[in-house]
Amino acid sequence: MAQKIEASVLRSPLGRVRGLGAGHSGTRHWWGQRATAVALVPLAVWFVGSVLGLLGAPQEVAARWAGRPWHAVLLLALLAALFYHLELGVAAVIEDYVPNPLHQRAGRLVLRGAVALLFLRGALAILRLALT
């Protein structure tokens, strides 16, 4: 019986699944959200623990801490995972509450732009600390 349906729409089940969910895409976003969530577990613990040690610190101490090679690498990884995770999460909120497709697309573009600029600004600061 299932085969009869497939034949009548002239489309394979895989073809139907691909690109036709509510978000008009497959499972890539789902995976990306989970992968970054897993990465953010140790990164967030490390960052919060480190910041506790920097409370009230003078600028030189904070700058030296962030500029150490592995600290800079972990900070860049934290920003990358955080902003990727953040964009997927906020995009889901936009998709849920903005019914007009044009507004939705505009909202996602603005989100992408803001995320890109903030990530680059943070990355520039980290690289400055690591390379000077």
């Binding site: 600028q59 904070a62 999460g89 903030l118 520039l124 600061a125 980290i126």
Partner: peptide
């Protein structure tokens, strides 16, 4: 979802803090 959105706003603060650490002393 609500805390996720709050943390998204907090990410701006994180970037501002990193920029301040790398910036001029009066900024920090």
């Amino acid at each position: 979802r609500f805390t996720g959105l709050a943390l998204a706003v907090g990410a701006i603060l994180l970037v501002a803090w990193l920029a301040a650490v790398a910036g001029p002393p009066e900024h920090y």
